[in-house]
Design a protein around this nucleic acid. Structure first.
Ligand SMILES: [Zn+2]
Ligand SMILES: [Zn+2]
Ligand SMILES: [Zn+2]
Ligand SMILES: [Zn+2]
Lengths: 164, 164
DNA sequence: AAAATTTTGAGAATGATTCTCATTAACAAT
DNA sequence: ATTGTTAATGAGAATCATTCTCAAAATTTT
């Protein structure tokens, strides 16, 4: 059992599945938020926990539903606010899929790609390699200041691709 | 002067500036739409004209305002509908910038990158090269069906980048 | 020109996101 | 542990981009 801010955590953090390789763990995110002057509240903890636990990207409504299982008082407004904070602090990205739907994806400094499945919202991560490094150099040479946390390529994953 | 569907066009199409290298010209788009069974109407023509003429990406409201200078009756609903049609038919992409705002960018089959400036909405086009080809191969090998028309990299262009 | 069909404009409806504000919770300093 | 300061919250109202509705108009076909 782990004690954080007087809260008991029995979850084995190492066993959690992340929807994206680079999503930091709850503890690391809480620490970072705390150091940035944010308060670590129950609802925020619940939302962060839910996002990290998810095996796929979740819509704000889905995050709400799951967060309420941890803390029933969580409101939708807080889900949105927490997503904002997490984005602001560089812990996650939100990517629109189609007309509704979002994918919540990781945030990582080095340029790399995410293959986001439109249908099942899974996110496959391409590790930074010589290609993405070359692209990064190219951006730099053009004076273009890259502001994303990752570059999302939208499509259908192997499972969801009828043709493949 | 050019005659299309009994409409007189005095615009020198070759002198238009495109916000993206691959945006087809009005005529080509009209032809393509027509061949797909869409009717070439005044409002659609106005919207297409406006988008192609723009030096930067426009929001739907901005498209409306400009289209009304060509055909005052154009409605916002038609702007949205036309954007949908153009997207559906692979003539343009819409990329969210921040909480509001869109960038309207080109549509091109071969994988390539757009550097979209968050501030001035300019779009710099990276031509397909060996890196994007390598990435395309990688996607193919992973069974991932790429569905975008181009990959948008959001950031600040050299002009708008205070640090650069 | 008339018929068949699509597209349109205007404004209502929707629905995701943001805002408001009184209340509560977190944190730091006692 | 208690208190004071201040950020964060929940509930629901408000906003605003987008979509929908439908009778009227425009386009294309006959
Ligand atoms: Zn990543
Ligand atoms: Zn999938
Ligand atoms: Zn392009
Ligand atoms: Zn710029």
């Amino acid at each position: 059992m782990i004690l954080i801010n007087n809260q008991k955590y029995t979850t084995l953090l190492t066993e959690l599945r992340y929807n994206c390789c680079m999503l930091k763990r709850t503890l690391a995110i809480q620490k970072a938020l705390s150091e940035s002057g944010y308060r670590i509240t129950q609802p925020r903890r619940a939302v962060i926990e839910v996002i990290l636990r998810a095996r796929r990207s979740l819509s704000p409504e889905e995050v709400l539903a799951r967060a309420r299982k941890i803390d029933p008082s969580v409101s939708l407004a807080t889900v949105y606010r927490t997503l904002d904070v997490l984005h602001e602090q560089g812990h996650l990205n939100r990517v629109r899929i189609g007309k509704k739907g979002y994918a919540l994806v990781c945030s990582e400094r080095e340029l790399h790609f995410h293959l986001v499945c439109k249908r099942c919202r899974s996110v496959v991560e391409l590790q930074p390699d010589r290609f993405s490094k070359a692209l990064m150099t190219q951006l730099h040479n053009l004076g273009f200041a890259w502001q994303q946390n990752a570059i999302e390529i939208i499509g259908l994953c192997a499972k969801c691709n009828p043709a493949g």
